[in-house]
């Protein structure tokens, strides 16, 4: 059988020790992605180190800089429904609740969410070429059925999309990912956490083999007054985004003091374009300015045979979502469009 050892780590350090000591060790949190990958025979592990029981605090910690620290080991559900998050970072709460299903969110952890793998059909089918699964074998999606694939930041090696919702909000909020490893701990700004495919599509992110995500820091600024998360997908729940947008606005009257816009479902990582956010600074919050920002965000986007539509859709979604952010009460639950 595909046997593996299973160890429950009592602390982060113990988990790291297990990982460095063993061969082909993987951390397991909620298991909602990892177990599927193992069943599909795409991932193998000789040892699974369960990080759900680490003694570190799973509560949300208020930091001195006015921000919050989320435990990587808390579940997506615990995070989304935490009153502090609901009040101060409702954008994050909305994004999490737009993802997966209630059952999965009850199992899935914040750390695992950051590391979930793409949903590219070809990645999951071991009998077709895929550079992400098997470097150098080719990319079947480029000439294949690529409706769900990326339009930004693609490469000749891979056009896959990073499927998370939560991470789109974290990107907009400029979260910081804290990791610990054999060489100590470090903090990675969200924008540097995930990678573009380039010619190394087998690497999704910049975390090291034995490193463990311990927490995620949210800066003080939560955009809790003017925010919105919009997810466009093939069914109203339990489907990954074809395009999603997280918007956070800081307004002075109807003038934008600061804007954050992150796109999901369009690239190998959450997509943000500083130029567009700079453009919005000091401008009135209206359709035409948002549209101009959208054009900047989508600059250089290229469609493939079946996903050309994403380019215009993403632009419209940005405009709509920023307009919804002006009045968050207009949002429907589950990140359905309304206004």
């Amino acid at each position: 059988m595909n046997n593996f050892s299973y160890i429950k780590a009592a602390s982060v350090q113990a988990a790291i020790d297990q990982s460095t000591a063993g061969f082909n060790v993987k951390y397991i949190a909620g298991g909602t992605n990892l177990i599927d990958l193992m069943k599909y025979n795409l991932t193998r592990a000789d040892t699974l180190v369960d990080v759900n029981r680490v003694q570190e605090n799973k509560d949300i910690i208020e930091m001195e800089n006015g921000g919050l620290r989320l435990s990587a080991f808390a579940t997506n559900a615990q995070t989304a429904y935490n009153p502090l998050i609901e009040r101060r970072y409702p954008l994050l709460s909305r994004a999490i609740l737009a993802g997966a299903s209630a059952q999965i969110r009850n199992m899935a952890t914040n750390g695992g969410n950051l590391l979930q793998r793409t949903r590219c059909y070809y990645f999951y089918d071991a009998n077709v070429p895929c550079n992400k699964r098997e470097p150098g074998s080719g990319c079947a999606a480029i000439a294949g059925y690529n409706r769900i694939m990326a339009i930004l930041g693609t490469s000749e090696s891979c056009i896959a999309v990073f499927p998370s919702d939560m991470c789109i909000a974290l990107a907009a909020l400029e979260a910081i990912v804290n990791v610990e490893g054999p060489e100590g701990s470090r903090s990675i700004p969200f924008a540097d956490f995930h990678r573009l495919p380039g010619d190394t599509p087998h690497l999704d992110n910049n975390i090291g083999q034995d490193e463990i995500i311990t927490s995620i820091d949210l800066p003080a600024k939560g955009f809790s007054k003017n925010y919105s998360y919009l997810k466009l997908r093939d069914r109203n729940s339990y489907a990954f985004a074809l395009v999603s947008v997280a918007s956070g606005l800081d307004l002075d009257g109807d003038v934008i003091r600061e804007a954050r816009i992150a796109l999901g479902g369009v690239a190998h990582k959450p997509w943000r374009v500083e130029e567009a956010e700079d453009f919005l600074r000091g401008k009135p919050a209206n359709q035409s300015n948002f549209r101009q920002a959208a054009e900047m965000i989508l600059k250089g986007a290229t469609g493939y045979r079946h996903n050309e539509f994403k380019i215009e859709l993403a632009k419209r979604a940005i405009v709509r979502n920023c307009m919804m952010a002006l009045n968050p009460a207009t949002q429907l639950p589950g990140a359905q469009p309304s206004v």
């Binding site: 949903r119 059909y121 089918d125 000439a143 294949g144 059925y145 069914r235 109203n236 729940s237 339990y238």
Partner: peptide, 28 residues
């Protein structure tokens, strides 16, 4: 909602699971 996605280059179906073969959910 539902459709089986075929890739005629490989002569096979690509969304062979209930995550990607979209039948309606309650919210639909």
């Amino acid at each position: 909602r539902e459709e089986t996605i075929s890739d005629h280059h490989f002569g096979k179906y690509m969304n062979q699971n209930l995550g990607e073969y979209h039948i309606p959910v309650h919210a639909d």
